[in-house]
Design a protein around this nucleic acid. Structure first.
Length: 930
RNA sequence: ACCCCGGUGGCGGAAUCGGUAGACGCGAAGGACUUAAAAUCCUUUUCCCAGCAAUGGGAGUGCAGGUUCAAUUCCUGUCCGGGGUACCA
């Protein structure tokens, strides 16, 4: 009876479905555990061996928790809205719903193959109207709420309106401090509010809503015909397709995530994400402490009296040699001197003509223009020229800076480029060639700051600034509000009705607002989304319209983990009872590429839902683990130039060759299957080979797994050849979960051999059953209890690679002891269940156990079998290990010293001298210092 | 440029709190079983030197220092690789 993994795996997969083994109840007295994978976007390419890495680890952990007596929620679903399906629709004319459905089926088949314990009755698909109904509902919660800065949480708009009716916006100032009413004021009174018509009131409310419409500079991608979020633009080009992106002003939905910057930052202290992940989020939020300082302005027109800059280095105020404002700054046209007008206009035109790509590509290029106006240093009245330059961004701080060339590299380069004299305020710390951004130099040429260390001077200036009422301390964030409109068909429609262009929330009972059927997915080209091609849907009546945009793919992903808790609820996005029971995701496993967008938006939505009283927790994921990528291991053949002759890698230097990728599936290790190669592509049908030692040896390289490199390994093939249990364990055995590593099929034999060896502890090819019910010896008990402790510890800390090796050690040791005892082996089978569920269930059953091994109880490591009475200590002389000595664990320092001095080898190294010191660390080691 | 993470045999990797570096697996070499092969089993395998051998000695965790009885582990500097951010004042 040999290990027939194909029959075993098929049989149990079917039985587990039939018995509903993975169905999870919301009603349980057991403690809960919520173990989640980042749900995949169902691409047309299907899964490659890199995808399941995270899924296998979460499955192991979920199964482990189940054995440990937890009620485990371990669901799976699909992030099914998104760009590729729509691009595919445009190219092939296949409706995204159809291609998405087909892709989901492929994914499902591939996933099922690997033996996951997902409760598929809880599956969600973000493109399902039953699901996106609630995505739209949550969007409306955001639309109908504002962020109350006083108690730092989201509240219903009614609270705000009540405040307006009582005291205008005195208590709740406009979140955007640059926003002005048509009369130029930033405030209004209760009387003024009440006097406004509905349109005006709604315009004001729009300034507060957490989901709001605004004309914003958006990243417009002409080729994709859509707007992209900041995180979808990489180096000035679109993240998908790599098309150019330009700035364009459009009326867009936005999420006021900036109001949550501080809470998103603080939340990082209480959640268990990797350091690098937290770091990425901190950088993205980009908090910086500084001051806003006002400078008097002297200009010909004299209409502007003050300009305000943001600086993190108020200590350098006496080193300010020029001011720079962003080209888009409103002030520019009011301060420009008559004789500078032409130059300024030309510069502004130049800036406008520059695309985002050019700006990105030419970061080092220094451009700018003098306005003819001056600012006055508030402390010594010095006249400082005001320049415009694109290196100052309108959207950050106040859109204006004070430039300190001796301390800031960009300012320094600018000053050198335009020959602006540089004031040195840090003496020898500045060499005249390069700026020095130190905070530790002693200030000079700095009036009342002279002699102070810069670090300390910051506080002195801040106090002075506040006393003189010319500025205030200010915290700024790099993060911007999130653009939430996409000019796309395949996404959630906005549940909004525009009545005479004023947006109103749809009635909740009318949700979902479904996507209309359409076969025209091309962008309208005007900036409107493809829904504009369905006028019957857009135009509800002459005066009422739907938005032609849809939400980004992040919308559905921002809350799916909540829906799994109660996926079929038609009254609520999930019942409060289910939400309270399952609570936070205990362990969330996924790729680090979602560090910014998905995780930040999920955290935001959960915080808002929490503030509005729907959730008892305000962070979605308690612990996050980023699995590493599995890279591809490419193979190359070398074609002799201008021929169809291929030379083996070892001989290729003797010829002039071209290197070609070859399908890794027709290479065994490095040896090419030349017959398969001839059949691979018609071009190679009559290929000839120059062999070495009768073999064709390929070249190799580690690259990302990609179709175009022919290095993609489909898990289906691996499962077919070795079985799901081997595949699962091998993926874990490759290395630490978080590390990136190359896929190398060679090592899989070792893991497969291990499972066969395990099987032979129970059944032998010739003898049949070898397991027995004899009483276990102490040595055998020790082996299994050692394994229990090690494997439990390793599983608990997600160190699955070392757990697999612990299984191997255990089987090797039992094999050496010729132990075939059920008492020992059944414990091993339970331990193995999370890792290799099929073979474990089979052996469990064959041993005559009742019930499924999935619900067995995890063995407990008993100390009494693990206690040692003596230990072989390493004996070091001066830190170098020279010999070993077996000692009782009870040995005292005195006994140890006596034994050591009597030892021959120790004596040899002492060379007659007496030791200076004998270090004895119980249970660890001995060291003799001579 | 800045920030984060990492660098250990031929290879993937292990060493969890500063205590025998190289677990486990692959690959390689030799052997057993077999007509043969597959499968399986056994032995060796960080490098260098000496020895027929048991063994003995030296070096060794990117590099250079430091702290310590003891450093892959902690500290400083430096090089290399991966990731993130990219004019954020």
């Amino acid at each position: 009876m040999e290990y027939n993994f194909r029959n075993i795996e098929k049989k149990w997969q079917e039985q587990w479905i039939a018995s509903g083994a993975y169905k999870v109840s919301n009603d349980s007295t057991k403690p809960k555990a919520y173990i989640l994978d980042m749900f995949p976007y169902p691409s047309g390419a299907g899964l490659h061996v890199g995808h399941p890495l995270g899924y296998i680890s979460s499955d192991i952990y979920a199964r482990y928790k189940r054995l440990k007596g937890f009620n485990v929620l371990h669901p799976m679903g699909y992030d099914a809205f998104g760009l590729p399906a729509e691009q595919y629709a445009i190219e092939r004319g296949i409706h995204p719903a159809i291609s998405t459905e087909a892709n989901i089926q492929t994914f499902r088949r591939q996933l099922d193959n690997i033996g996951f314990s997902y409760d598929w009755s809880r599956e969600v698909q973000t493109c399902d109207p039953k699901y996106y109904r609630w995505t739209q509902w949550i969007f409306l919660q955001l639309f109908e709420s504002f962020y109350n800065r006083h108690n730092k949480k989201a509240e219903k708009l009614e609270v705000l309106v009540a405040s307006f009716e009582k005291e205008g916006n005195k208590v709740h100032a406009f979140p955007n401090n640059k926003y002005e009413l048509s009369n130029g004021s930033k405030t209004f009174t209760a009387a003024e509010w009440k006097a406004m018509d509905e349109v005006a009131q709604r315009e004001i409310l729009m300034q507060y809503r957490l989901a709001y419409l605004a004309y914003t500079d958006v990243n417009w991608c002409e080729a994709l015909g859509t707007v992209l979020a900041n995180d979808e633009v990489i180096n000035g080009v679109s993240y998908r397709g790599g098309f150019p992106v330009i700035k364009k002003k459009m009326r867009q939905w936005n999420l006021r995530i900036t109001e949550y910057a501080e809470r998103l930052l603080e939340g990082l202290d209480v959640i268990d994400y990797s350091d690098s992940m937290k770091e990425i989020q901190r950088n993205w939020i980009g908090k910086s402490f500084g001051a806003e300082i006002s400078f008097k302005v002297k200009s010909e027109q004299n209409t502007v009296t003050d300009m305000t800059v943001f600086t993190t280095r108020p200590d350098t105020i006496f080193g300010v040699d020029f001011m720079v404002v962003a080209p888009e700054h409103d002030m520019v046209k009011e301060i420009t001197a008559a004789d500078r007008q032409q130059a300024v206009d030309e510069y502004l035109q130049y800036v406008q003509s520059r695309s985002e790509v050019e700006r990105m590509a030419e970061v080092k290029k220094i451009t700018g223009c003098f306005t003819g106006a001056y600012a006055l240093n508030p402390f010594n009245g010095r006249e400082i020229p005001i320049w415009i330059s694109e290196y100052v961004l309108a959207g950050y701080g106040t859109g204006a800076i004070m430039a300190v060339p001796c301390g800031d590299e960009r300012d320094h380069k600018f000053a050198q480029h335009f020959n602006i004299p540089i004031t040195n305020i840090i003496g020898a710390a500045y060499d005249g060639k390069e700026a020095n951004p130190t905070k530790d130099a002693v200030l000079e040429n700095s009036d009342f700051l002279n002699g102070l260390v810069m670090r300390d001077a910051i506080e002195v200036v801040l106090k002075k600034v506040e006393e003189a009422r010319i500025g205030k301390r200010q915290v700024n964030y790099k993060m911007r509000d999130a653009g939430w409109s996409r000019q796309r068909y395949w996404g959630e429609p906005f549940p909004i009705v525009f009545k005479n262009d004023v947006p109103y929330a749809m009635d909740v009972k009318d949700l979902p607002l479904q996507l209309p059927p359409s076969d025209d997915f091309k962008p309208s080209g005007t900036g409107e989304g493809p829904l504009a091609n369905v006028p019957s849907w857009v135009n509800i009546s002459d005066t009422e319209k739907h938005d032609t945009n849809t939400m980004p793919t992040h919308a559905g992903a921002a809350w799916y983990f909540l829906r799994y808790m109660d996926p079929h609820n038609e009254q609520e996005f999930a019942s409060r009872k289910a939400l309270d029971y399952w609570n936070q995701v205990d362990v969330y496993i996924g790729g680090s590429e979602h560090a910014v967008a998905h995780l930040l938006y999920s955290r935001l939505w959960v915080k808002v839902l929490h503030d509005l009283g729907f959730l008892s927790f305000d962070e979605p994921f308690k612990k996050l683990i980023n699995q590493g990528k599995i890279t591809g291991d490419s193979r190359f053949v070398y074609r002799v130039r201008n021929s169809n002759e291929f030379v083996s890698a070892g001989l290729k230097d003797k010829y002039e060759t071209d290197q070609l990728h070859v399908d890794v599936n027709i290479v065994d290790g490095l040896e090419l299957d030349t017959e398969a190669f001839k059949k691979w592509k018609p071009d190679f049908a009559d290929a000839t080979f120059i062999l070495e030692d009768g073999k064709y040896i390929c070249g190799s390289a580690i690259e990302k797994m990609s179709k175009s490199y022919y290095n993609v390994i489909n898990p289906d093939q691996v499962v077919e050849k070795y079985g799901a249990d081997t595949f699962r364990m091998y993926e874990m055995f490759l290395g630490p979960l978080e590390a990136s590593k190359p896929w190398d099929i060679k090592g899989i034999e070792g893991v497969h051999r291990f499972l066969k060896k395990l099987w032979r502890l129970f059944y032998d090819e010739t003898k049949g059953q070898v397991w027995n019910t004899d009483k276990a010896t102490d040595a055998e008990l020790k082996v299994i209890h050692k394994a229990i402790r090690k494997i439990e510890e390793d599983t608990e800390r997600f160190s699955f690679n070392t757990a697999v090796s612990a299984f191997m050690v255990c089987v090797n040791e039992l094999n050496d002891l010729k132990c075939n005892k059920k008492e020992i082996l059944e414990k091993l089978v339970i331990l193995l269940t999370p890792y290799a569920p099929h073979v474990s269930e089979e052996l469990w059953q064959l041993m005559g156990n009742a019930g499924s091994v999935l619900d067995a109880s995890y063995p407990v490591a008993e100390e009494k079998y693990l206690i040692e009475t003596s230990k072989e200590y390493p004996v070091s002389i001066n830190g170098k290990v020279r010999t070993q000595l077996v000692l009782s664990l009870e040995a005292t320092q005195q006994e140890v010293e006596q034994l050591l001095l009597a030892n021959e080898i120790v004596q040899k190294w002492l060379e007659g001298k007496s030791p200076k010191k004998v270090i004895y660390v119980k249970g660890k080691m001995l060291n003799v210092v001579v």
